[in-house]
């Protein structure tokens, strides 16, 4: 069985982003500062990872205003959800087949 791991998600930081967003129900968006706190990443670092995820079509980033302050919201797209599902399945499959080998 050939289980290629999705390179977009197969990096700790981006996996954490996707795993976090996947806990929200479809149709919900999370504000950037909330995501940042939850992940314990710097704003710059998180932005870099988010743009990679956005390029892949896995997250959708919306910028709005709350009064005069700009707020950025992040949500997982359907494609992102599917990719995360695939990834966790692949990881589980790897664990099952690997069972025993170091």
């Amino acid at each position: 069985m050939n289980t290629e791991l999705d390179p977009v998600i197969h990096a700790q930081a981006r996996l954490k982003v996707v795993a976090t967003l996947n806990t929200l129900p479809q149709g919900d968006r999370l504000a950037f500062p909330g995501l940042k706190d939850l992940l314990g990443m710097t704003a710059g670092n998180l932005s870099v990872h988010l743009s990679k995820l956005e390029e892949a079509g896995y997250v959708e980033i919306t910028k709005t205003h709350k009064g005069r302050t700009p707020v950025t919201y992040v949500a997982l797209t359907k494609r992102g959800r599917a990719a995360f599902d695939e990834y966790t399945k692949a990881i589980r499959a790897l664990l099952d087949t690997a069972g025993g080998t170091p």
Binding site: L15, A19, T20, I91
Partner: peptide
């Protein structure tokens, strides 16, 4: 990686 996913989702 699996542990990372689980931990992150619990925290979320």
């Amino acid at each position: 990686m699996l542990r990372l996913i689980e931990e992150q989702q619990t925290a979320a």
